[in-house]
Amino acid sequence: MNSVSIKSAAIFAPGFFANGPVHTALLIGSVVAVVSATVGTFTVMRGQSFAGHALSDIGTAGGAAAPLIPVPSIYGFVAVNVVAAALMDLLGVRSPRARDVATGIVLGGALGLAALFLYEDTTTTSNTGTVATVLFGSIFALQSSLIPVVAGFGVAALTITLLLYRPLLLSSISTDLAATKGVRVRLVAIAYLLALAVAVSLSALTIGAILSTALLIGPAATALRLVKRTGQALVLASGIGVAAVGLGVLLAYDSVSWTDNGQGWPVSFFIVALLFGTYVITLLVTRHQPHRNA
């Protein structure tokens, strides 16, 4: 359709910096990337990637229930995730395997509920919006009015994580060591899961479940391979996350001129592909080592 513009497509296609949705996407995307990378560094260290991913799906039950009550979907999302996080902690405390199964049970039950609420939504309110948004949410469809809400929840998740920094770090490296040093390991674990629940609700609702997990795990896992100190990993992970969001938004904006139908490729694809590629390359160039943190 637009063969001229294909050839003339610059790195920054015309209008990139003047585009409203692009501004909003970059701003919210960066906030979510920093929050996810910070919370995610501990998710990776504690081996809770499954919980981090599961919460982005579990919240859809709350998102689907919200129109039935009716309340704004963000509250349903956060409420269900907080309850689910508490349940996971309650069910699976013994070993990593028990935790894995407990997460699976909670996820299975929540998805069942989501199916029911979704069915009720479509029969009573003809509203499937939330579930579709969460499954394939687009960073370009964000409303700028969401910025204060996103920032508020983001600050909450960041505050909990940073307030807990020392005890969280200690108990993530070794629960036994932390316990002997007087850290209340159980309390720290629950508080951390709450921060994770809030962070994931925020990212899943704004940018979708796919990007939520990608930004939570990808930058943190990459950073923890590259640097030894956790503080450095936090900063590096945030940088990787923000860079991937920026580059992904740019590529998605440019991609509209790549195809004949002018459809463009989804931004979530670019961001995930960048994060996945970075992670795989990092795995290949670094030696196998357990995460060392000091």
Partner: peptide, 26 residues
């Protein structure tokens, strides 16, 4: 083989889902 299994699984599922989003968009 080179990283924790839960991280490997998380990266794999998001890459698969992202490809799905790409295919669906076309």
């Amino acid at each position: 083989q080179r990283a924790r299994r839960d991280v490997a699984t998380a990266m794999t599922i998001v890459m698969m889902l992202a490809l799905g989003a790409l295919f669906l968009s076309q």
